[in-house]
Simulated assay, not measured.
Amino acid sequence: MVEDARFEDGGERPLSLKALDAEDLTVISALVQDAVVPVGEMSYDANKRRFAMLLNRFRWEDVEAAQARGRAVERVQTVLLFDDVIKARSMGVDGRDTETIVSVLALTFEAGPDGTGRVEITLAGDGAIALDVETIDATLKDVTRPYVAPSHKVPTHDA
């Protein structure tokens, strides 16, 4: 019997996910919400048609278990890759200021003709990265062991 994975199934294991459509991308979006990344850890390789980010991802999938066990919430370094990227551009992000840290709020997809479209990475503080893609081809892969979140708190969004 095959059943869908549940959010909490991630538990203690490193995540390795692939998104090939807009629905898949919403799962990755939920997992990278509140991830932080230095601008210097983002790159676009036009020859390989690849956009990559090395995120410090908040482990949303582990919050309930951490709180139930009385342990600290965690972050983990994660690579987020987008392949088949035709064009990448940003707004409100100075690529020369490599030490600036930005926070990811959401990933969205706006469909175009014949499977093409635009992936938008919305950043806190009115920043955004737009990726024109031939098709959705995103990979999320945890690459380090989890570590205690420096704030020791679950991120919140005050209205």
Rank of each mutant, 00 (worst) to 15 (best):
M1W: 09
A5Q: 09
R6T: 09
R6W: 09
R6E: 13
R6A: 10
F7M: 06
E8H: 15
G11F: 03
P14Q: 10
P14A: 12
L15K: 03
S16A: 15
S16F: 12
L17I: 04
L17T: 01
K18F: 08
K18A: 06
A22C: 03
A22G: 13
E23A: 12
D24L: 08
D24V: 05
I28G: 00
A30E: 04
A30F: 09
L31N: 00
D34F: 00
V36W: 03
P38S: 14
V39G: 04
M42A: 13
D45E: 07
A46S: 14
N47A: 11
K48F: 04
K48D: 07
R49G: 12
F51R: 02
F51T: 06
A52N: 06
A52D: 07
A52P: 01
A52S: 12
R57V: 04
F58C: 00
F58D: 00
W60L: 13
V63H: 05
V63C: 10
E64W: 09
E64L: 14
E64P: 06
A65F: 10
A66G: 04
A68Q: 11
A68M: 11
G70I: 02
R71E: 12
A72K: 09
A72H: 05
V73W: 00
E74T: 15
R75A: 06
V76K: 01
Q77P: 02
T78G: 04
D83R: 09
D83L: 08
D84G: 03
V85T: 07
V85Y: 06
I86M: 10
I86S: 08
K87W: 14
S90E: 15
M91I: 13
M91Q: 15
D94Q: 05
G95C: 05
D97W: 02
T98N: 08
T98L: 11
I101P: 01
I101M: 07
I101Y: 03
V102I: 12
S103Q: 15
S103V: 12
L105N: 12
L105A: 09
L105P: 01
L105E: 00
A106W: 01
L107C: 02
L107R: 00
T108H: 05
F109L: 02
E110S: 14
E110D: 12
E110I: 12
A111F: 04
A111T: 07
G112W: 02
G115N: 10
G115A: 11
R118G: 04
E120P: 06
I121C: 09
I121F: 01
T122F: 02
L123V: 04
A124G: 08
A124S: 13
G125V: 13
G125E: 11
D126K: 11
D126G: 11
D126V: 03
A128D: 09
I129M: 01
I129V: 14
A130D: 10
L131D: 00
L131K: 00
D132S: 13
E134L: 09
T135N: 14
I136T: 06
D137L: 07
A138Y: 07
A138H: 07
T139G: 11
L140H: 01
K141A: 14
D142E: 05
D142H: 05
V143M: 11
R145D: 13
R145L: 12
P146Q: 13
P146D: 14
Y147C: 08
H152T: 08
V154G: 09
V154Q: 10
